[in-house]
């Protein structure tokens, strides 16, 4: 495989137009898969096109509408170290802090986590509750779409051939008094989530929820939302009683699968129980 390092977007798009070219972001997932493909005699790309030579894909900036623009090739550690991410997107920062391990966070990128589109992708539930969208670019131009529309299944996205994710646009979560992310795994570091939950609650002056956004990871082919559980929390203070009611709704509706990490029954139980943690916040 040839490895190309474009410095400008037009150069990148030209490189991606070549047959068998593939984007290489942080490599923490792709290189593991390519090595397995090589060993088993499967076809591998003819060239890998690096994103880390393009400065415009890295860093955090403020958009005119107040949202944060997170460069797709920014590493997880780079995002985690950024004060704007920590202050305005704490639910994302919490997920980034638990993602992989320190060296994985030093290498893996946000755009890579999205395009891998794993059911267990740690940044997906928080970005869903934040209402994030993605900016996509190709030689044909730039377009934006909601992250919820971008990811269509496990490992599947709406990325067109020759197109890359250039940025994630995430509105600030400052007006949400309750911001929470929790991942349950076999250990703290380097664990693929068994179940994860990202939650945002906006409370009125009396502490009652006027908006609830909940998103689970690892309980379905993509991030799972539960509008019925969100509705159950509206008009309620997030007390243990109210959360237990919503958790029962979650357990009745969630349809996870058995796999090598956990049983479906365990996942259902935990998917509900993770909500109870909001009572302590």
């Amino acid at each position: 495989m040839n490895v190309l390092t474009p410095r400008e977007l037009p150069e990148l798009f030209a490189a991606l137009a070549a047959p068998g070219a593939r984007v290489l972001a942080g490599g923490t997932d792709l290189l593991v898969r390519l090595r397995a493909d090589l060993r088993q005699g499967r076809k591998v790309p003819s060239s890998l096109v690096r994103l880390d030579g393009l400065e415009e894909l890295c860093g955090v900036a403020r958009e005119p509408d107040g949202a944060l623009r997170l460069g797709a090739a920014t590493t997880h550690a780079g995002l985690l170290a950024h004060p704007l991410v920590r202050v305005e997107l704490p639910v994302l920062a919490a997920a980034l802090a638990d993602l992989g391990s320190p060296p994985i966070r030093n290498m893996g990128t946000l755009g890579g986590n999205l395009c891998t589109a794993s059911p267990a992708g740690d940044t997906l539930p928080p970005l869903m509750v934040l209402g994030a969208s993605v900016e996509l670019a190709s030689a044909a131009g730039v377009r934006r779409m909601a992250l919820a529309d971008f990811i269509t299944g496990p490992g599947r996205t709406r990325l067109a051939p020759g197109e890359i994710v250039t940025a994630v646009l995430a509105p600030s979560a400052r007006e949400f008094a309750v911001r929470h992310f929790e991942k349950v795994g076999r250990r703290s570091a380097l664990a693929v989530a068994v179940v994860s939950l990202a939650a945002l609650l906006r409370l009125d002056a009396r502490g009652k929820a006027v908006e609830a956004r909940l998103a689970w990871g690892s309980v379905g082919p993509t991030v799972w939302r539960c509008p019925e559980a969100e509705a159950a929390l509206l008009g309620q203070r997030p007390t243990l009683t109210a959360l237990k009611r919503a958790a029962a709704v979650v357990r009745a509706r969630v349809q996870p699968i058995d796999d090598l990490r956990a049983s479906a029954a365990y996942r259902s139980e935990v998917a509900g129980n993770l909500l109870l943690r909001l009572a302590a916040l």
């Binding site: 490895v3 290489l24 490599g27 923490t28 290189l31 593991v32 890998l48 550690a77 992989g100 391990s101 320190p102 060296p103 994985i104 030093n106 290498m107 380097l190």
Partner: peptide
């Protein structure tokens, strides 16, 4: 596969995994 850290090196001062770098 990036899960044990034994191949760690510092690249420009930052810990990276040399098994997942080209």
């Amino acid at each position: 596969t990036g899960e044990c850290g034994a191949c760690s090196v510092l690249v420009d001062g930052v810990q990276k995994l040399s098994c997942l770098m080209l």
